[in-house]
Design a protein around this nucleic acid. Sequence first.
DNA 1: TTCACCTCTGTAATCGGTTTCATCAGGGGA
DNA 2: TCCCCTGATGAAACCGATTACAGAGGTGAA
Lengths: 337, 337
Amino acid sequence: MNEHRTQRTARIKDVARIAGVSTATVSRTLSNPDIVSEGTRRAVLEAIEETGYSVNLSAQNLRRQRTGGILALAPNLANPFFSEILSGISDVLRGAGLNLIVGDTAIGDDARLRLVDYANRSRCDGLIVLDGSLDPEVFMRSQCPPVVQVCEWIQGLAAPKVLADNERGAGLAVDHLVGLGHERIGRLAGPEKNTLTQARDSGFGRALGRHGLVPDVVYRGDFSLASGQRAAEQLLGARNRPTAIFCDNDEMACGMMGALRRAGLQVPEDLSIVGFDDIELSRHLTPALTTVRQPRKALGTRAARTLLQQLDGVDVPNETRVPVSLEVRESTAPPAR
Amino acid sequence: MNEHRTQRTARIKDVARIAGVSTATVSRTLSNPDIVSEGTRRAVLEAIEETGYSVNLSAQNLRRQRTGGILALAPNLANPFFSEILSGISDVLRGAGLNLIVGDTAIGDDARLRLVDYANRSRCDGLIVLDGSLDPEVFMRSQCPPVVQVCEWIQGLAAPKVLADNERGAGLAVDHLVGLGHERIGRLAGPEKNTLTQARDSGFGRALGRHGLVPDVVYRGDFSLASGQRAAEQLLGARNRPTAIFCDNDEMACGMMGALRRAGLQVPEDLSIVGFDDIELSRHLTPALTTVRQPRKALGTRAARTLLQQLDGVDVPNETRVPVSLEVRESTAPPAR
DNA sequence: TTCACCTCTGTAATCGGTTTCATCAGGGGA
DNA sequence: TCCCCTGATGAAACCGATTACAGAGGTGAA
């Protein structure tokens, strides 16, 4: 069964020899079967079967002047928030026969150098950026392949964006809280320079304005559970607390809620909390978290599809806004008298 | 500043022409600078600077007979458990100049076909498999590059494994519960055919045996929050409940705990719960979850390093066992009288 | 019969690097 | 002075595909 010489994997040449045709014909049989005759096609397919041939992607990519891969750049792979977006991206790319390459932007000192190296046509055919804190210059060089931004966005970078409707999300949260009777509504925000946080700040302020209210205290966090906990400690130490808090993500909301309960405060009796994202966990907390649902998988698939269109030369909208919705659960209630 | 003709990205030929040397010398300057003379090297580097040249990876890969990428196969990218392992893998690969390609094994009908296509030397230089439910045959074909298994493992596949010490983890949980005075200890396990679950079953049974006890009721879940919730409902309906439950992961523990509390049961007063994994959330739950800590990032880095060694032709251990530890928090207490 | 045209296939150039092998200049020893 | 050796470099083969171009053979119309 085995040849006596070392079993090399088959080349297109081997297939051609066995089928009694040229390599050109083999190539055509695979990429454009209609233009080869019935009989030849059968012979070639048989030879492929016999040899177990599969095309060498490096060679194909070189010749076709592409790489077969899309690079997704996320600030922190370990963060579950990003992983679901990646999953959506992966689904779409798989269907298009493209590899999903992932890169962590939380990289060492030579970060900029690394990024420039990543954002290169010879490494990937396109780029999906999930990190709004990167240097826009990197993506404006001529070597950089097409870019799509998702969730966050980079100031000064003109690449298409796929975003959740952050303003509206903040508005939904405020409307809900005001509807319950809250008037002193605080905020647990992300970093000041974060574009998401800015969009939600603005939606938050405007929605309060519509009700004739102004923002109460603002705490700054970094989207981590731990920073929610820290904010809770500040809150506990304050006098004249707000009666509700709108948090920039569920993880901070969760960290805050845990710390408050530990200190003996009741949620929602003593304080209402609204999160953002609707991570899977949120509905399983006690109390289950009221939150603004952000369809992360859809964000990923939309971003990937936008990028594919761009690669096909189709015109794409500069901004795609994915709708959000409010999931009312148990962490919000009318304020105590 | 711009040439009047279209700005092509520079080729090695362009650099060679400008530096007044052959392409061979340019290549050598980049891959093995010591063998070119000082003056030549300077001229080449200057020409590279001037042209903004960077090597074409497809061409380099073709010539070097490699792909520059490692493929990680995970059952579900959206699952935060895997994302932290991926993050560890990413760290190591980045240092080695390799791309991390990720693939979801939760793919459609033609799954096997897809996998065979993935597990191919021309797509990746190596494979890290995080899914124990795959067909071993796929990875035993001659086209398949070196494989390392991490966390889970495939029955009948001889590739090196990097595993948490599951038996010992289960033992730690049992010892802790028995130490608190529990004698009727139940289990919320993963799917019966899952290798992790089997290892923990065995550790669980053996540890109980050491204390002269036998397992109480066993619920089956699928590692999801929802399945924890379902198990809780079964538990609530049962008479003669166990006084403690050892769960196969924190998410199921969390789903169970939420449902129990909702039904008015107190954790740990009425039932003690131990999880497995120590996901970040666990310490922020109320009550904070007692759990077996599994160092996920370390699992990822170890797996990646093992694979790199294998690619270098170094002999690697068939099984690397990463130690686990018990994090005692608030979800466990002595049983009620 | 001749010519235009169509279908199918093969030849060879090409993608952009790396590496083997040959060459050449210069230095040191006999 | 001659020869050998070493270090630096260039010419050309090679990696494995794709595709422009050309040619062979067949068909149908004039």
